[in-house]
Nucleic acid binder design. Sequence first.
DNA 1: TGATTTTCACACTGCAAAGGTAGGTTATTG
DNA 2: CAATAACCTACCTTTGCAGTGTGAAAATCA
Lengths: 133, 133
Amino acid sequence: MLVSTRGRYALRFLVDLARNRESGYITVHELAERQEVSKKYAERLMAVLSRGKFVETRHGAGGGYRLGVEPEECRVSDVLAAMSEELVPVECMKCSPNTCPRAQVCPTLPMWKKLGGMIHDFFDGITLADLMK
Amino acid sequence: MLVSTRGRYALRFLVDLARNRESGYITVHELAERQEVSKKYAERLMAVLSRGKFVETRHGAGGGYRLGVEPEECRVSDVLAAMSEELVPVECMKCSPNTCPRAQVCPTLPMWKKLGGMIHDFFDGITLADLMK
DNA sequence: TGATTTTCACACTGCAAAGGTAGGTTATTG
DNA sequence: CAATAACCTACCTTTGCAGTGTGAAAATCA
């Protein structure tokens, strides 16, 4: 039931950028150091966030990353999705429609569906703005 | 964010036993076949449930498993715990007190804690009796 | 323009945990 | 005592995550 470090680090990076929005562009080096994540790994995760338009980038000297969204409008669920974090509790719910042959008779599926909904709603209701305080 | 098959299969086995409580002892062979899980794997998972007192066993001919608890009193959270399913969403919440040096300043930890609480409450509120209907 | 600084891309490795199997042992029944 | 069924342990295989190395491409600044 763990959330991958990918998703968790990404959130921490975004919160960091959100809190330091006035400082202009921030390099991966700085970000990685503050968040105590290896620079190399941080680099990769930030690239994903960049593709997902969560951050704006600037190459070259004086460059780096800055937040590309309004903290109030950036939902945690979107960030996790961008980091390809599956928010469903069971394999068979990954793709819809459910292809499991037992889906119609599975006594536990309704429970998993309900939980999946809960989790999704939970992350939907939290934004970067909530986390940066 | 997936629940292991261990936990999921175990629940299905228990629901099966609960639904067939009048049939006396049920062999792993039968159980595995109905639930479409390999007999060998089912055997192992049932042994765990046995150690956890969720089922009663009987060796030899005519033996097998039968439910060892009242469905109304068997919480899903207990079953998952017995199958060593960690219900926390992040590594650092596995042991308490939290040993992560960033715990005090982590901007995301409160969110994970809240989610963890929600998930635990969710599974606490569901019993075998709810699933067997 | 050219050196420097930065992001970006991708292949690769290492590792741990999960899923699943094999074979044999012990307990119980009839 | 033969058959049956749970039990146990060690093992194998796969998978996905975490993390690194190398080297580009892009932009800056002098």
